[in-house]
Design a protein around this nucleic acid. Structure first.
Lengths: 351, 351
DNA sequence: GCTGGCAGTCTCTAGAGGCGACTGCTAAAT
DNA sequence: ATTTAGCAGTCGCCTCTAGAGACTGCCAGC
């Protein structure tokens, strides 16, 4: 028997073991499997099968006289089976309905993502998250200058997806409110629709070109734009919900160790960490599952990640769930997939 | 000896006990106090004092043959002493420096508060928070309409303190972009500087008054304003940092129970809960400390709250720290006080 | 009023023993 | 060759016990 292909019976025993362990959280005994797997074989036979599975690394024993527990590889086999059979039977309608109810009819995209993370949390009881496409907010739509004091200006910049960034800039010299308005008009007329990078370059080019500026208005506008774009990064918007569930998990079993808990909480605080973690998995389409030790970060070896992408090309974002390795994969995969489909549809409908 | 006034020696013993317990986390023995209190009396004498303190409810024994642990009342006495002596020796300069470094030179007020919560967390190693004055964002400064599609408009509203609110509204009929611009100009000219409530009322009044509207531009502007102000609440801005430290606390001692942990985490998620909790303590000026069972919420009986207000009158906000009852009060009070002073100064400088 | 000494109380830890839950192995059955 | 039944063996967990250590409370003397 080669590693890749398990016989039908062996595979079935493994699947039953994983399911049982996910439900009970306790090592599964051969007698239990004999009763539940529906194979009509005795515990002794199951024991033989289990011995093979253990040799191949799919299950392990916490101690000599205990039942079997799935290893990460065991989960992997189970999840792959699930993903295989799912292709036919996806049904995210209930998630989509919930999302609609939660987010309202005409949400901002950010609101939709926030709702998505919330729904994922509520349904899965694990930490839910949603990430906007990285270029989401990178297209310049509009700029506005609000005078605060003669030499201080609040800049409000709207980028695609109705995202609003703000910044206060200090001017070297006073600028009249009317000049600010005109500067904004000029910039809006000239640059709307370009990417932030393109705007940046265009602004610098023109400042260079028209070094001897007759038109003082333009000069002010371009300088303001330059200052505004300095150091403004369109940050990837990340929404996370359900951090409080971590405490619940920790009480149930200490399967999720405290250091893991802290890593996750810190991730909630520094959301960029999550983005970095996910970058590696944002390639393929559909639902991906990362289990335990498959994570690069050793602190997350006790966690699994279920993530699905939405959107296409560069405008690709992700939604997903982070929970303990022992999670209800079947339901979680359904839910995450449903959420991704719903978000994708919203995005399509809007364009 | 009456309850209110402890003799000098008794008070000193209590203070020493509290300090020691805060450092060590373990019941303090009479011998230890005899050594450290600097009173030059034998353990037996200390035992007599402790027996009195126990009668009066300032300390308790976890079990018969253990040292003493301060009760909430004991902490209270200690903290009151601290607050008394602090009046002379406040020194928040290091906190202010840190805050400046963290927030940069010309931060938005929201950024300042966010930095404040972060600094409080870093210095105290407990959960730090900062709350903006409730009316902070309630003065209308400017409005802007960005067309998304013929019948959908993104409204960007700037209120005092450079706070930006946004909302998408659906129009019953298409409005030309130029009309939107003019509407914004009109509203900005008419209503800047009024409170949101005043704006709301004024808009309704004018709509009523000029029922037969010649000026279509005005009609559009007022209707847009009405729709915008519907259901827009200037939410109290709350910043919290350091939730991940909770996990650390929980590992150190389970003094902070899991249900408490969950309550706090949920508070981080639903920030309005924190505001509600604090409302009761936002009356007086200066630093307030709420210890253990003094909290109305029984889930927080294991926690203490150190909070200071800044600003005056209705424009009063708060900064503070939430941590276990056994926290380093002396340092925490310093830090919170320093942060409040720094924020207050920033607010004063800006006006 | 303070102090030294002593008996008493309680926790904590380590070790022993019994119980229960499974497995691995072997030998017989299919 | 596969499956099964039975049995011996292993290990975790719980309880019980005993001993050590840490303090206190109280009493008698200063």
């Amino acid at each position: 028997m080669t590693t890749g292909a398990l016989s039908d019976r062996t595979s079935r025993v493994l699947a039953c073991l994983v399911k049982d362990y996910i439900d009970s959280g306790e090592p599964v005994a051969s007698a239990t499997l004999s009763r539940r797997a529906g194979l009509g074989v005795s515990p002794a036979t199951i024991r033989n099968v289990l011995a093979q599975l253990e040799d191949m690394g799919y299950v392990s024993q916490p101690h000599t006289s205990a039942g079997r527990v799935p290893t990460d590889l065991g989960y992997r086999h189970y999840v792959d089976m699930l993903l295989e059979t799912r292709r036919a039977t996806r049904d995210g309608s209930s998630v989509e309905a919930r999302l609609r109810e939660q987010a309202g009819d005409a949400p901002l995209f950010d609101q939709l993502l926030s709702s998505a993370s919330h729904v994922l949390f509520e349904v899965s009881h694990h930490v839910g998250f949603a990430i906007a496409p990285s270029d989401m907010h990178a297209i310049f739509q509009r700029i506005e200058f609000v005078p605060l004091s003669p030499a201080r200006v609040l800049v409000v910049m709207v980028t695609r997806g109705s995202h609003v960034s703000q910044k206060v800039i200090e001017l070297s010299e006073a600028v009249a409110p009317s000049a600010l308005t005109q500067a904004a008009n000029y910039l809006n007329a000239e640059f709307a629709g370009l990417s932030l990078d393109e705007v940046r370059q265009a602004v610098l080019a023109r400042l260079e070109q028209e070094r001897t500026l007759y038109d003082e208005l333009r000069a002010v506008a371009l300088k303001l734009a330059r200052t505004t774009l300095e150091g403004i990064e369109a940050p990837t918007a990340v929404f996370i919900d359900g951090a409080s569930s971590l405490a619940g998990d920790a009480s149930a079993v200490s399967a999720v160790s405290l250091s893991t808990l802290r890593t996750l909480l810190r991730m909630v605080e520094e959301k960029q960490r999550l983005v970095r973690l996910l970058d590696a998995y944002l390639d393929g389409p559909g639902v991906a599952v990362v289990i335990g030790a498959e994570h690069p970060d050793p602190q997350l070896h006790a966690c699994s990640l279920v993530v699905a992408t939405y959107g296409e090309g560069a405008r690709r974002g992700a939604v997903g769930v982070i929970g303990p390795t022992r999670m209800h994969y079947s339901r979680t995969i359904s839910v995450v997939d449903g959420a991704a489909v719903a978000v994708a549809r919203f995005l399509r409908d809007q364009n």
